[in-house]
């Protein structure tokens, strides 16, 4: 279509229920990182890095990792497997 592909943002578990949505498409702005997207979406807490982890394209990533159009960005609340 000639448009920059959008970012796909996913929330899970408690985070999803607190925000009231599971998935959003977002325009990929220049210089976007998980930190800027978190702020742009108005998600809480304001300082998430202590408790929330991020995954880009289904791999753990850093909060300051660069994002590109077409990326799948997921915010992951504390994990409890096994």
């Amino acid at each position: 279509m000639g448009h920059t592909p959008e970012l796909r943002v996913l929330l899970f578990a408690a985070l999803r229920e607190r925000a009231g949505w599971r998935e959003r498409q977002l325009a990929a702005t220049r210089g976007a990182t998980p930190t800027t997207v978190w702020g742009q979406l108005g998600l809480e807490p304001a300082d998430p890095a202590a408790t929330i982890r991020v995954a880009i394209n289904q791999r753990f990533a850093r909060w300051d990792s660069p994002l590109a159009g077409g990326d799948e960005l997921a915010f992951l609340p504390p994990i409890s497997g096994g």
Binding site: A13, F60, S80
Partner: peptide
């Protein structure tokens, strides 16, 4: 897997 696999 308890700490590094995404399960909730």
């Amino acid at each position: 897997l308890k700490h590094e696999a995404p399960f909730w």
